[in-house]
Design a protein around this nucleic acid. Sequence first.
DNA 1: AAGACGTGGGT
DNA 2: TACCCAAGTCT
Length: 288
Amino acid sequence: MSALHDPVLAWYDDHARELPWRGVQASAWSVMVSEFMLQQTPVARVLPVHEQWLTRWPTPADLAAESSGEAVRAWGRLGYPRRALRLHAAATAIVAEHGGEVPASYDDLRALPGIGDYTAAAIATFAHGRRHVVLDTNVRRVFARAVSGVEFPAASVTRAERDVAQDLLPEDEPTAASWSVAVMELGALVCTAANPRCGDCPVAGLCAWRAAGKPAYDGPPRKVQTWAGTDRQCRGRLLAVLRDAEGSVPRARLDAAWADEAQRTRCLASLLADGLLVRTDAGSYALP
DNA sequence: AAGACGTGGGT
DNA sequence: TACCCAAGTCT
């Protein structure tokens, strides 16, 4: 046991948010839907959409019975709509290959579309109580500071980082699961990227970064997402037209949504290629 | 393996 | 106002 364990676990007992995908009554499917939605998206924006999804599609089979376009539409403005497509595809695979039950094994989860290392570990852990290293951006930041003494982790997960997390993972399954969610929560609420609330941190006295005087980040420049005028913005505009329409829309409606013709045409093609849009027989466009 | 991929709230 | 960045995945 590390000296970090008890204070972090105790802190979580007192400060954990009550979220619908936590708690004993939450289904594995509820956890899985939440993990997809939470990929790069804040909790506050996920909450209402998650509730709508679970009400409308309480099981993987319910979602799989719908068209993928309905999933994209119901995804709303969560962003990265390919996640909706992948979640729909994952639900379909769960019905076809797993009897409609969300798999409990990391390997089975990892094989599903849209599920990478983090999400597989998270679902196995939070939905099924399995013991896995759960390394998300929050956990990585907490360990970078508390253990490694630096403000931010590297751009991608390193072997050393994984070793630290593995060494810190409690031996028994229930405690390992509690530990993982507790460290994540600590990173989300206290050990935040900007303006960490060290005064509220249960392990401030053990934190290597704080002990070193909180040295400023000195690694390579962290990537900043460009946005205005990008294909991403264009794609978002085009898809929003379809999301907000009843059925199919004529090409002219899409043309009106983005001025640059070359870029618009390119983005339309990429949306088609991604399966986020389809062309109808009449030559108009619709959600799949 | 660096870059693409949405969106909106916080500072 | 800009810029930061939020429970990643895929190619």
